[in-house]
Design a protein around this nucleic acid. Structure first.
Ligand code: ZN
Ligand code: ZN
Ligand code: ZN
Ligand code: ZN
Lengths: 159, 159
DNA sequence: GGCGGATTGTTATGTTGTATCATCGCCGGC
DNA sequence: GCCGGCGATGATACAACATAACAATCCGCC
């Protein structure tokens, strides 16, 4: 919890990000009695290789290096599992996938996507979340899934 | 301006929606000295056939009925033009396109997507918009494009 | 042993979106 | 009159993203 809200745009010990994410995933899957199989864990690790969203076929290429039987369904099944368990998110505007920095905590998808460096930061903003709910309520709309993707320039790239 | 904020979930004179949208598009393109060519206008009309997002290949099928030369680039070029002019929006979570109900007025993409009937309502909620800006500002992020897509049940389908 | 559910293997196909170069029509300069 | 540039479209091919369908395997349990 302490080191989970780092600034992903700055240099940081990213191995620690990966280790934390994997440890957290293992713990959550254990609690829930679902299987974080080797394939799923490997896919999760691949997605976590950076703070940039990764395409499914990029994951496939990586996975195939150590797992020759890998095919598109292999990857998509793993991604579907990880999404269902809240361990990764799909970035809809990029058709790509990103490790969730808040796994295990209820939250909605809110992302800041830098168009220059690709770095995508997940934010958890209760006020924004509340504004989404309020907007839906005004329209008598029952919310099931909320997607917020803001594209632009991160602090580094805006200079 | 008076009849532009109808309830798209209720029965309504949809021909009027289409006519208004097309007239508005013609006026805006005229103002801007860009060409709303027959292909582009036809694609806009196809997208406006309903208040449900339409896929590019669905547009292609429709277009090809009256324009045999139509191919994927034909459609994507028209869609790109219409998006650039703010006449339609892309619904990222569906890879589909929807007529803009606020063409010519500065606004961000905010949508309520009913998973049952498919009807997608564009909302313009300044508070939500401000919440997006505030969230980005807190993260020192320069906003270029804001995407909000809320999926769930519309008032009709929630019953 | 054999049943059933979860996972993975395997092949094929469907869907969405681009790259590239050719062609056409128009308009303004020479 | 003709040429050159430009915006739009034609045409072919391909890249990128995603799923269908069925077989095989593994493993705990009766
Ligand atoms: Zn990191
Ligand atoms: Zn998350
Ligand atoms: Zn209508
Ligand atoms: Zn709009």
């Amino acid at each position: 919890m302490t080191d989970r809200h780092i600034d992903v745009h700055k240099a940081h010990d990213h191995e620690a990000c990966i280790d934390t994410a994997l440890a957290r995933a293992r713990a959550l899957c254990d609690d829930r009695d679902v299987q974080l199989t080797p394939i799923r864990e490997k896919v999760l690790a691949i997605v976590w290789k950076s703070h940039k969203p990764v395409g499914a076929y990029q994951v496939l290429d990586e996975l195939a290096r150590t797992h020759k039987a890998a095919r598109p369904p292999t990857v998509y099944r793993a991604l579907d599992f990880l999404i269902a368990e809240g361990l990764i998110h799909k970035i809809e505007s990029l058709n790509a996938y990103l490790g969730c920095g808040e796994a295990g905590v209820a939250h909605t998808s809110q992302f800041l996507i830098c168009r220059v460096c690709g770095t995508t930061e997940e934010i958890v903003d209760p006020k924004l979340d509340h504004a989404l709910d309020a907007a839906a309520r005004r329209a008598r709309f029952t919310v099931e899934r909320k997607m917020v993707e803001i594209a632009g320039l991160c602090g580094r790239c805006a200079g």
